[in-house]
């Protein structure tokens, strides 16, 4: 690097200690990725997206049938990052206190009672909210509030949640009876919605070989919390060229059925599209993806690849869309295909 620019960069960016050895930290992320892959067979995209969300301090909604390794992924991630992991199995009778914790009466040595806050399972770095849609809306709201505020308030006392704090909630798309689907406003608070797919044949064989033997692989911690914090800060500093921001904005606007950029099928099948929170999530995810890739700038490819996980839960289909079984991912793919990247020069050049 040119010494003058290096000097200039140092001077201009005082307090950027998190950038020290940034490449090594990015390399640490790759090692985390390898650790997870050593335990989890397949699900590469799921792992990458969870890592991206972790770097962005965003919460993830995982949707998939039971038994696809969702819990295992989250647990392995926690292990490889030396993070505290907790799991909450959401049921209809689960109460908010079961999630966020409660005050309990404790008798001291003098025999008098005092209230002491007993943190709930949400006080962890990685919280797996299993089948979140089975809990009552009240309990869901308690969790979602904690997700949004990164803190809980009980009897007027605010309790800060540990950093990093990430909730990975799961939904079972099949058994919808007796569930409480998350309201759209609350779904929007999830940074990403990741669809967990069935493994392929080769992956399934590998899963069998790896899990039914005597030796069960375990992940080792390869990145500490400080390093993770540094990376999380570095993500925010990743450069985004103006045309990528412009493209992202147009992409978001194209999902809105009333906007002039909307495709005819968006107007036909979409009830409402993504808002500013979607744009923020997409850009931030793009930055994290670029950093994980070893780049320090966001590319159009990053945005396009992350559009589905970042936006699919922010677009609601109308009755026509639901009855026609339209897939939001297909709509997003069509938008990406139709949307020109550069408006200043004609197509073909």
């Amino acid at each position: 690097m040119n010494p003058s620019i290096k000097e200039h960069t140092k001077k201009e960016n005082a307090g950027t200690e998190f950038l020290v050895n940034i490449r090594e930290k990015i390399e640490g992320l790759r090692r985390v990725r390898e650790q997870i892959s050593a335990v989890i067979v397949g699900q590469d995209e799921v792992i990458d997206l969870i890592l991206i969300a972790l770097l962005c301090e965003g919460h993830v909604l995982l949707e998939g049938v039971p038994g696809l390794g969702k819990t295992m992924v989250v647990r392995t991630l926690a292990d490889s990052l030396a993070l505290r992991f907790s799991r909450i199995q959401f049921t209809p009778d689960l109460l908010p206190a079961d999630v966020i914790g409660t005050n309990i009466a404790i008798q001291d040595e003098g025999g008098s009672f005092r209230l002491q806050f007993e943190p709930g399972p949400v006080f962890a770095n990685l919280t797996l909210a299993d089948e979140i849609n089975r809990a009552s809306p009240k309990t869901q709201s308690a969790l979602l509030e904690a997700m949004q505020e990164q803190a809980i308030t009980l009897r007027g006392v605010r309790h800060q949640l540990p950093r990093p704090f990430q909730v990975l909630a799961t939904q079972n798309p099949l058994e919808m009876e007796g569930t409480y689907p998350l309201p759209e406003a609350q779904i929007d608070r999830f940074f990403m919605k990741i669809l967990v797919q069935y493994p392929s044949e080769s992956e399934l064989i590998a899963i069998i070989e790896r899990t039914v033997g005597s030796a069960i692989p375990e992940a080792q911690a390869v990145l500490d919390i400080e390093e993770l914090h540094s990376l999380q800060r570095a993500v925010r500093e990743v450069v985004i060229p103006p045309h990528v921001s412009s493209y992202t904005a147009r992409l978001i606007l194209s999902t809105q059925p009333d906007h002039e950029l909307a495709l005819p099928q968006i107007r036909q099948f979409v009830r409402y599209g993504s808002g500013p929170r979607g744009a923020q999530a997409l850009i931030l995810a793009g930055k994290a993806k670029a950093l994980i890739s070893g780049r320090f700038n966001v590319s159009i490819d990053d945005i396009q690849q992350l559009a589905c996980p970042a936006l699919r839960h922010r677009i609601a289909l109308n009755f026509d869309g639901q009855s026609e079984r339209v897939r939001v991912d297909d709509l997003l793919s069509n938008i990406i295909n139709a949307l020109p990247v550069d408006l200043t020069r004609p197509a073909g050049i």
Partner: peptide, 11 residues
């Protein structure tokens, strides 16, 4: 070069 990561980008 006012960004923290600008030097890396230029590199």
């Amino acid at each position: 070069y006012s960004g923290s990561l600008d030097a890396f980008v230029m590199e």
